[in-house]
Design a protein around this nucleic acid. Sequence first.
RNA 1: UGGGGAGUCGUCCAACGGCAGGACACGUGGCUCUGGACCACGUUAUUGGGGUUCGAAUCCCUACUCCCCAGCCA
Length: 563
Amino acid sequence: MASNEPAINQDFIREIVVGDLESGKHTTVVTRFPPEPNGYLHIGHAKSICLNFGIAAQFGGQCNLRFDDTNPTKEEQEYIDAIEADVRWLGFEWAGLYFASDYFEQMYAWGEKLIGKGKAYVCDCTADEVRERRGTLTEPGRPCPHGHRPASESMDLFRRMRAGEFPDGARTLRAKIDMASGNINMRDPVIYRILHAPHPHAGDKWCLYPMYDYAHPLEDAIEHITHSICTLEFEDHRPFYDWVIDECELPEPHPQQIEFARLNLTYTVMSKRKLLQLVQEGMVSGWDDPRMPTISGLRRRGFTPEAIRDFADRIGVAKRDSMVDVQLLEHCLREDLNRRALRKFAVLRPLKLVVENYPEGQVEEFEVPNNPEDPAAGTRTVPFSRELWIEHDDFRETPPPKYYRLSPGNEVRLRSAYFVRCTSVVKDVAGNVVEVRCAYDPATRGGAALDGRKVQATMHWLSAAHAVPAEVRLYDRLLTRPDPGDVEEGQDWKANINQSSLEVLGGCWVEPSLADAKPEERFQFERLGYFCVDADSVGGKLVFNRTVTLRDTWAKIEQKQKR
RNA sequence: UGGGGAGUCGUCCAACGGCAGGACACGUGGCUCUGGACCACGUUAUUGGGGUUCGAAUCCCUACUCCCCAGCCA
């Protein structure tokens, strides 16, 4: 690494890595991202992905994608495919693609080895009996009656378990450690259980499946993982992790398990269980609903992988439980999109604006910058005519203090076009403003006043005759409270679900250049926010998702005035 | 009341015995053909109590608070 390279990402895990490299414990770095294919990846996984792949890249090592598929009753091929796609979309390429299930034969052999050493035994207890004898947090467990079964008998039984001679739950293989340990994970944990279930990757080959605690350290050892990074709740599994590797007599250097705090985000549920619940109970349209914190949901919403990676860098890595403000994620997104997104005009809640002194039938094309942040993005033309759409919120018959936009008698700029002054309004029988009339100043063509006069507001607009219809979906946070666990007595997290997190706007208009926009393309609709073409845009129908609004100073002023 | 972890601005992360700093958020002002972006300025923190030390967020003792663990889930 060049000496002028900036020191980046110095967290406690990277400090350990540096230490291991300097001490010579390791000469290379191998990490892994080990999802169980029982659900979709979410922003919390993205933190882990960025950490594992990031460390490997930073130290010239490698990172594997490994499916931790030890429980066929919960896993599906659909999830395997989605996880691979999501990791790639985030911008990472794995050194090796592995499946824990491909190691089952080797793991089984090590199981026999443990039996032979007297370090594991076949237990005939029922699940209830195991639980009953395990003790509690404060009381030690009691020895299992099968703990002293001769190794030869356990060996025979273990082989017959594999052969399919026993039904689910009839027997287990247990590590023989210490039923009195203060650490419940060391009270003779089950390491193999019988499951007559087809496996999405291994097929019908097995009816005997290893438990996570037994399988994971072996997977890591097989792949020569140097640093096995996981979340905090596995901290007290570490003694067993080390026990497995030691007792299976795997060669040095052993992988080292290191735990960090998982990501929590305000206004966001993160557990796979809760996300599954949202999907199964129809609270959202699916795993990729744009309100979901899943990678596929964020992608459909319009997030960029760059923004997510930047976010992962900024939140850091530590061991204390924390709750990151979702506004930081939004900030990273806005920063990225502001730099790159092409600007467009769109009117979400249209109000007719008639330019009374503009010739009927006349059309002008105005040149508008595609991205003021990036002159290289060039310009486009937008047609202008006598009848326009403006945003309903850009007109007030009686403007509140500090309202700069259109109101009777007031002059504003129509961006890149003309100054217009409101002359009158047209109302329906109920008294609602249905049309605004104005006069334009031909001397302000292109949006600049030669006499140097100023207007306080610049507004976007669309020629009614040229605008293209679209549907726009506005999203709000899925939860009403920052902490999803913050609920009244007796209620669960679903009490905090925001019932109005989706608003569908049907009568929207967008500029003609958007007519051929394709799914996942992102734009800034000027003054409104960032928007992304939804996959539902088929057959000439345009559907946009609002990714995130622009920062809105006026909204803040208005909020204050209301209070 | 067993075992394992963690306590620094509102939030997240730094500072590894030597001036508590950055980012987000928030506030004020400037600028602007997006009330965007950008720029400037500002408010706010070492859980409490002892000790060691010239000097403690950092080391020691103690108290307190919070999180995780009793799946044949991961």
